[in-house]
């Protein structure tokens, strides 16, 4: 049935509004990032700068010691290391964990799953003090390792839950068949379950990287210089001086979004392929 004209108009207007709400802040951020600081403070405000400049990007990307660029570039490096390492560790642990929750029997296992979720629900503020004490006692403050460990505690419950609910949809016959075919349990997971769950795995990896990339609270508390400061903290630092350079902050915001966007671009195919694949039964 063809939708009526009013319905069509309604849908398009709605879609346009949604796009506007999502796109306008990004657009604004971009405009600010190519404006000079004088331009940003001129009244009345202009929609488009008279002399667009890439000066802000340059001062972030061209390395100079003790400058915003140092803190920014180190921040990017630290965030990449921490987000990807935490994701790798979490996924590596979540796959067997989720498989076990999904496939193996036992009431204690089920209780454990709820414990995992309950811990995930705890606000970070509730556990930050004990964590800080522990990290401090172990001499791990201001290291990548500390943040990787802490981020794993956030990512692991999330990825486990996500993968578990996807494994649940895979028919049990499909991990019994490889065992009959001579595979052991790990081979069954590697050759059969994971390829089938690839879209969910892709989604889990992406969400995990994003969660870690965007994390601010622990990053702020557990790091104090460029050796371990993450990008979110570095950007906040740009705003913390006596004079906040909004152009610079905007440019940093745009640049900080690049790695996740690149990741999403490359994983897009994996994510979509899952939506199209059918079931096995005939």
């Amino acid at each position: 049935m063809q939708p009526s004209l009013t319905k069509k108009i309604f849908i398009y207007v709605g879609a346009a509004l949604l796009a506007l709400v999502i796109a306008v802040p990004v657009l604004w951020l971009f405009i600010m990032s190519i404006s000079s600081s004088t331009h940003l403070t001129t009244l009345p405000l202009q929609w488009w700068p008279d002399a667009p400049t890439l000066e802000n990007y340059k001062s972030l990307l061209v390395y100079a010691e003790n400058s915003p660029s140092a803190s920014f570039l180190y921040g990017i490096r630290n965030s990449i290391i921490i987000a990807f390492a935490a994701t790798a560790v979490s996924i590596a642990a979540a796959i067997p964990g989720a498989y076990s929750f999904s496939r193996l029997p036992g009431p204690r296992r089920k209780n454990l799953l709820f414990a995992v979720i309950a811990i995930f629900m705890l606000p970070p503020v509730a556990i930050v003090l004990p964590l800080y004490t522990v990290m401090s006692a172990l001499g791990l403050l201001n290291t990548h390792f500390a943040l990787i460990i802490v981020y794993c505690s956030i990512l692991l419950p999330f990825t486990t839950w996500l993968l578990k609910s996807n494994f649940d949809t895979i028919p049990g016959d499909l991990d019994e068949a490889p065992i009959i075919d001579g595979a052991n349990r790990l081979q069954a997971i590697w050759y059969v379950i994971l390829p089938i769950a690839r879209p969910a795995l892709g989604a889990a990896i992406m969400m995990a990287v994003l969660l870690a990339w965007d994390e601010f609270f622990y990053g702020l508390l557990f790091t104090n210089d460029i050796r371990a400061k993450t990008i979110t903290v570095a950007i906040a630092d740009l705003a913390a001086g006596r004079v906040a350079d909004y152009g610079l902050i905007s440019a940093a915001g745009i640049l900080a979004a690049v790695p996740p966007v690149v990741l999403a671009f490359f994983m897009q195919k994996t994510l979509v392929s899952g939506l199209a694949s059918g079931s096995v039964k005939g």
Partner: peptide, 29 residues
């Protein structure tokens, strides 16, 4: 364990591996 018994089994649902071709399915064991 099942994998050491050298028994083959045909499942009611067939349990074919959906991401593999027919040739790969047959060759998997």
């Amino acid at each position: 364990p099942a994998s050491d018994r050298d028994i083959a089994m045909v499942f009611q649902s067939y349990a074919l591996y959906p991401h593999m071709t027919v040739a790969e399915n047959i060759g998997f064991p």
